[in-house]
Simulated assay, not measured.
Amino acid sequence: MAVISSESQFVTFSLGDEIFAVPVEVVREILDHEEPFKIPHGPEYLLGLRDVRGQGVPVIDLRLRLGMTRTVKTPHTRILVLDVPVADRVLVLGLVADRVFEVVPFRKEQIETAPDIGVRWRSDYIAGVVRRESGFVVVVDLARLFSDSGSALADVGPQSQVA
């Protein structure tokens, strides 16, 4: 009987001292940080738009979206351009990361459910955690992070009006 791989690849990055990961298949590219074009009246975490190969891509300060302090740009600050599947469409987003580290494999059995450990952000955005010698890696549930009813990003596109 053939063994099916239960390993997935993740891109790891930091926000402050915390390490996060997203599935490599949603990462389109990683760019140096540039100031985005500001969008008036957007939520605080929506920094603006950035031109990525001819497409206007919303840039999100993930630190603010997770209830952390605003990102302070350094020479290591990067933008992960992601294709986030949400409901019946794909959102193209740029997430600001303090530093991007590497692509790492995690086995399915390594990814634990998010325990209630008193973290600073809402745990429903956590797909799981992986223990490493240096601490934990938080796997972000991108679809949930950008599809909750409070997210302005989930309301992109035509809206149906209910009378």
Rank of each mutant, 00 (worst) to 15 (best):
Q110Y: 05
I19W: 10
A114Y: 01
G128D: 00
V162K: 07
R99C: 01
E25Q: 13
L49V: 06
T77G: 02
G128P: 01
I19K: 15
P58F: 01
G67R: 02
G118V: 09
K108H: 07
E44A: 11
K73Y: 09
V103Q: 14
F20P: 02
R50H: 00
P36V: 02
G94D: 10
R131C: 06
V22Q: 05
H41E: 15
K38R: 14
V57R: 06
V57E: 08
F37C: 08
P115I: 12
R50C: 03
A127Y: 07
L46R: 03
A163G: 05
R70F: 07
P23E: 15
V104D: 03
I117H: 06
A127G: 15
E44T: 13
T113Y: 03
S123A: 05
T12A: 12
F10I: 12
V156H: 04
R50E: 01
V81R: 11
R120G: 13
L80T: 05
V24T: 15
F146L: 01
P85F: 08
P75F: 04
F37A: 12
P40I: 14
V84T: 04
G157C: 10
D124L: 05
M1T: 07
D32Q: 14
L31Y: 06
R63M: 00
P58Y: 03
I126F: 01
V26T: 15
M68N: 01
P85L: 10
P85W: 07
V129W: 05
R78E: 12
G16A: 06
D98I: 11
L80C: 04
G48C: 11
E133Q: 03
A21C: 09
R122N: 14
L49Q: 06
G128Y: 00
Q55L: 09
D124Q: 09
E109L: 01
E34D: 13
P40N: 14
E18W: 01
R70D: 11
I60T: 02
S134W: 02
E44Q: 08
T74V: 09
S151Y: 09
P105F: 09
D88C: 03
G150L: 03
M1D: 08
